[in-house]
Design a binder for these strands. Structure first.
Lengths: 219, 219
DNA sequence: CGAGTATTTGACGTATGTCAATCGGAGTGG
DNA sequence: CCACTCCGATTGACATACGTCAAATACTCG
């Protein structure tokens, strides 16, 4: 488990003592916006989506969590986002109280969580650039590249890339409609940058070309 | 200084020993994307804009920092954003090395900085909702309300609200063009929600109405 | 294999971007 | 003190990319 990488074996043992496992079925809600923050979680399998909803039903997905990712970093006493399973999810959880106590005993753990939070902050800011300044095709290219990179980091297949989330989820993540997402997929396919053997499987044919489209190359 | 609120008097004295003051003239750049991270900063006067640029010149402003805000929270060894002064700015700085040492001596300080980072993360996520799912008028209403709230928190005038940044800055923050920003200002003025005695001074006439427009009311 | 749902594609309208002109205020010099 | 210039903000006219509504297609799962 990624959070534990900074701990010695006996410390990991301590962690496991206070840990609880839990499984989620597809689309099951883990926590809802406004819920009191009682537990923090670490993903062991599956993908989680974090979202914030507007009163009229519009929704923004702020991120997808992959196995090894940690959930509960941002908030103090109330969850500011909803977390739902995409497909089957396996995770372990700790009460905030236990986690607090453990962090006092193992300062390395606290430092590591802080580092995670800062990485999440950098990701959120990159997302702001994506949402505010990229065109739909650029957004999609950027999304595919980022997801592929993260998949690799998490030891999942990076190139025939699997997209467990629906087009609606992708649209709500990129700030678009599903139609525009779909058309952007077709554009990337027609320009030979990707292949779509199935709607939820993407092959990144021309990685460099995708980076150019994503507005991330430096020429 | 906000960072020091958790420290006792003698601890503040320690902080002041390693602190350096600095002034910036309008539009002066404090750090640029990619610069090595050597110092961290705390704003004492003025406003700072944080931005990320795309290779082709497009720019996204990820946030405005007010007096009391802290800069350098997100990054490890390289700055991921550019920081520039809007108007005259006064700030104090510490080397990352000194700050590190101080955090080891005063764990409360470390906790406080961590809390700041988490707040910044929540803000960044709220911004994602704004950028991805709000219409231009909604974006502007939301921006004015948020800025007004933060101004109040930072003991600045919340209601005749001063907007030190240019329309271009606002546009790059909201993910719009300056023309659309300007038109959105006139719409809010014409519907009686705000008054604009000067382009850089806004009066929030109908706070509740603004919240409704910002998509932040819960009816 | 069939029903239901997700995705893609098409036709069309409109909100926002683009390009261009006007207005207004700040600073400068006569 | 007033005119001139310059730059930022506003307004206008127009184009187009994206959203909306609707139909067709392709998957998924019983």
């Amino acid at each position: 488990m990624a959070v534990c990488a900074a701990l010695a074996d006996d410390e990991v043992a301590e962690l496991e003592k206070i840990m609880t496992s839990r499984n989620l079925v597809p689309d099951e809600m883990l926590v809802s916006e406004g819920d009191p923050l009682r537990r923090v979680y670490s993903l062991t399998a599956g993908v989680l989506r974090l979202s914030i909803a507007l009163p009229d039903g519009r929704r923004q997905i702020t991120g997808f969590l992959l196995p090894g990712d940690y959930f509960g970093l941002a908030d103090d006493d109330v969850h500011s986002a909803t977390a739902e399973a995409i497909g089957a999810v396996q995770l372990c959880s700790f009460t905030t109280r236990d986690m607090q106590a453990l962090m006092e005993r193992f300062p390395k753990l606290k430092d590591r969580l802080h580092a995670f939070t800062r990485m999440a902050l950098r990701q959120a800011r990159d997302n702001q650039v994506m949402l505010g300044r990229l065109t739909p095709v650029e957004k999609l290219a950027s999304f595919l590249l980022t997801l592929s990179m993260r998949a690799a980091e998490h030891k999942l297949s990076a190139n025939p890339l699997s997209l467990p989330m629906s087009r609606t989820d992708i649209a709500d993540y990129l700030g678009l409609t599903i139609e525009t997402v779909s058309r952007s997929f077709t554009k990337l396919r027609n320009t030979g940058l990707i292949q779509l053997p199935e709607p939820h499987i993407v092959e990144l044919v021309d990685n460099r070309g995708l980076q150019a489209v994503a507005g991330m190359d430096f020429h």
